[in-house]
Amino acid sequence: MTGIERYVVPASLEQAVECLQQLGEVTILAGGTDLMPQSQAGRLKIKRTLMNIRRIPELKGIALDGDVIRIGALTTISEIMRNDLVKKHLPVLAEACDHFASDQIRNAGTLGGNICNASPAGDTLVPLIVLDAEVELASKPDGKVYQRTMPLAEYFVGPGKTRRAPAELLTGVRIPLPPAGHVARFFKFGTRPALDISAISIGIAGILNQGVMTNVRVAFGAVAPTPVRALHTEEALEGKRLDAATIESVANVARDEVKPIDDIRATAWYRKEMIHNMTKRMLDHVAQA
């Protein structure tokens, strides 16, 4: 009963981007954990071509590339959670993966899929943003494969919408190795400890030196149409001594900075309260650590 006319399974990145260039209307399938329920529920229509990208070797694996950790788009949430490089250098990402849906979904769902689904509540997005992650996009507009990168914080346009062009494929994520003294925290607030969609999420990162935070990154999930970097909150924290007065004022800035909506999971008022209370709690923990 679907309108799918063609199913393609490219074996290489080049084949994949060539298909995208030539066929135009393509829906990309990786883990399928968002695509299948959304299309079954009628919220997403699968286009004329369905492209399964799971056999593309260039999209797989986690590797150190100089001072950058590259995670291929097809890496599953379970693989990230268990990976030694991630656990050593990016523990906050492993922690976020531990709060991600259920084992079954983590085993199938991919990092690229979580990013391209572009949910404001996507669990890996907030930690990746505070880790200064960049996305890699490949395309083949004129017979040659091109790659470009873009900060993840700029990638999202709205719910389900990104800056990826229709002929581009997201191939992976590049995360700079965090420097010495780097701290990063993630908090996911749902109504139960497992199998939940965030009512809000918070990522905070920076370099902590003798009680002072610099290079501050703060991002929030589920308080706007996309995951967002909170620039005012970052500014309020940047270069400040992490004492009780700073923490309270940063939490207040955070509450004022977000503009959430009411939905079935929470009201806007409650989301703002949680942004305040949990930003404060996270910074208290950083200060005490």
């Binding site: 139960r192 400890p193 497992a194 999971r265």
Partner: peptide, 11 residues
């Protein structure tokens, strides 16, 4: 079952 929340094992 996404939005109607049954109790899960850890709770």
């Amino acid at each position: 079952f996404r939005d109607y929340k049954l109790v899960t094992a850890p709770e």
